[in-house]
Each structure stands twice: as C-alpha cells, then as structure tokens.
Design a protein around this nucleic acid. Structure first.
Lengths: 110, 110
DNA sequence: AAACTATATCGTAATATTGCAATATAAAAA
DNA sequence: TTTTTATATTGCAATATTACGATATAGTTT
C-alpha cells in the first residue's frame, strides 16, 4: 500500500522517524551542514551551493521545514533559513541515550 | 527522476543520510528500541512485538541491516539480531557535534 | 512601470517505499 | 520422515520520493 502505519507507534518513535526521514537524503544533510557553516541564518545562497536545480532545492527545504528541522523567515526579497536548535537537540539526546546505554551494556553477541 | 544523486555529496553526508533514512520509519525505530530493551540480542520475537505482518517486518529488518544499523546471525532455527554499536555511535557523535556547536553559537535569528 | 532577483508551485516522469498474501527455505521437534 | 517453527523471497498494488522544466509570485531595483 505504501502508506506508513503511523498510529501504531509511540509518539517518540514517530517523531524520531520524521526527523530521521528528513535527514534521509544527502542533499538535506548538506543543507543542514551548510546552515551550520555560516554563522547566522542565511538568505539565498543555498541553491548555488547544491548540485541540484532550484525547484529541487526548494522542495528539500520544504521537507526540512515540515519536519521541523529548519525555520524560514521572509526577509524582503529573499527568505532567511536557519536550523531549529530544538530538533537537533532532540536527535542528539535520543542517540546519546541509546549509544551510552549500549556502551554500558557492553552487549556484543553478534 | 526519483534517483538520489549520491555522487554529488560528501562521504559523511551520504553515510548520515543512509543511517537516517533507515531510521526514517517508525517501525524501524521501534525495532531498534526493542533490541535496546532486551539485554542481549534476541532471536525471534520481533514479529510479535510489531503491528505488522511477518514479511513486512522481515523487509524492515533487511533495510536496517543494509544500512548497517543492525547485525544478524543465524542461530539454528532462528536468527539473532542485534544493534550495531558503531552505527549508533556515529549518529550520536554527528548530532552531538552539531547540537553542541549550535548552542555555542547561540544563533537564533529566526 | 519594466526589468530583475529570489523563491515557490505545478505538472509530470522515473524510481523507491510500504505492506501483505502466497510461497519458499531451512532448521527443530515429533 | 512428517510436521512445526522461524525467517526470507516473490509478486504485486498503493503510495511516496526525487528531480526538473515551465511558470507563478512577490519584493527590489532601475
């Protein structure tokens, strides 16, 4: 069918999946890294940095925004995008907990 | 066209995207969480824990394995799956660096 | 106002994902 | 050896994603 059964999973599982899915494309990872590399949020530029056509980049930005990973403000002519710190913090915490917990267990049967 | 332009991005960008994509479905997040919740790696059970049919679960497991997030060993009748610590460590580090770096910048123009 | 700039949306083709019934495989138990 | 148990594979339908040309929108500059 192709439609994800969202309602069968926990809030957290769905939230992590949404964030992870948004980062499940190298272009979108590249966008985040670019937004990191510039000190403040940046208006424009993003299209010129990526090896993709403008509509494609626009679409990727939309997906990042829908997932809550970035925010965008209209700034006159251009649009100012920047990373949503909360979303990144969520991912950091989630994987920190898992990874740390794994190390404590020293579990390695495979 | 629908085919990701993998070759235009960095090694890291592609690696993170592969791992993130694998976690881009709540069922696969749930699988990781279940593997965490049991102390050692577990043979069987996974199908009974998820609200999905056996072939669907099998497919999700395959994707997690292809992405390098889990490992599987044949254990007689059953198969023993467990989390690949390295992959989780990679994700932890990646998001830690970004999140910490963001906090230092205290960048919040949007 | 006309031209330019930055970004979004529409339409569409190619491909990928999700889900499952049916079936295959292979080890274990009877 | 037949049956049971655990998992994988195949085939297929429904849907989603990726990419981009063409076009729209809206602010800026001239």
């Amino acid at each position: 069918m192709g439609a994800t059964k969202t309602d069968h999973f926990t809030e957290t599982q769905n939230q992590i999946a949404v964030l992870a899915k948004a980062l499940g494309h190298p272009a979108r990872v590249a966008i985040i890294e670019y937004l990191m590399s510039v000190d403040s949020c940046i208006c424009g530029d993003i299209v010129n940095v990526l090896p993709l056509a403008q509509p494609t980049v626009s679409q990727h930005l939309k997906e990042l925004k829908n997932a809550g990973l970035i925010k965008g403000n209209i700034e006159g002519n251009a649009i100012c995008y920047c990373i949503d710190q909360n979303a990144l913090e969520t991912l950091k915490s989630y994987f920190s907990v898992i990874s740390t917990s794994l190390m404590k267990k020293k579990y390695s049967c495979c």
